[in-house]
Amino acid sequence: MTGAHLVQAPSPSENYETFFNGLWKQNPVFVQVLGMCPTLAVTNSVRNALAMGAATLFVLVCSNMLISLVRKRVPKQVRIATYILIIATFVTIVDYLIKALSIAVYKALGPFIALIVVNCMILGRAEAFASRNPPGKAILDGLGMGLGFSFALLCLGAVREVLGAGTFLGVPLFGPRFQPWVLFLLPPGGFLTLALWLLVFRAWQSRKERKQEQWRAAA
């Protein structure tokens, strides 16, 4: 079924753009500032950040695909209800899958797996993209956005684990004399790290804009 849709999918360059849009230009965390709760809550270690990123990616791709498949049949009035139903289904599925794969990861993420349902990024993509595009494109969009989200979680998780525990993926980096900066593992560290990353992104963007202006002025 998907293959048929993929045939009518537009040119490769457009697919390429759909994919990279979410990964970088419209990054759900750094640019759109969506899905803040899991971003802050489960990024005190790289492992948790990656697990959360993977779970969200799975839900996003699956829900985007299913929503795109039924998009022409869903009346406007029950649109949101249908989307939430579909998203909640895949969240339940991922909840059971993680429990079956590793109880340790399940315990570390805790209720935040179930809370993927209310990650505004997923409902946002359903409404803004999947309900308007064929499944092939919707899957690409889900992949891009999901990877962008995972990338952002990884950025936060890396900073917090390296500074807060002196380890990366549990491997000690600095030797026994390192005094961990515990604050970064605690809730305030989450807020501060995300704020710093946003500042970095903002500064980088405004520098780029300034350069473009100089170019234009020179031309």
Binding site: P187, P188, G189, G190, F191, L192, L194, A195, L198, L199, R202
Partner: peptide
């Protein structure tokens, strides 16, 4: 970013 910095201090 400002809101998050403030939230960090409040936290």
């Amino acid at each position: 970013a400002l809101v998050l910095l403030l939230a960090g201090i409040l936290s």
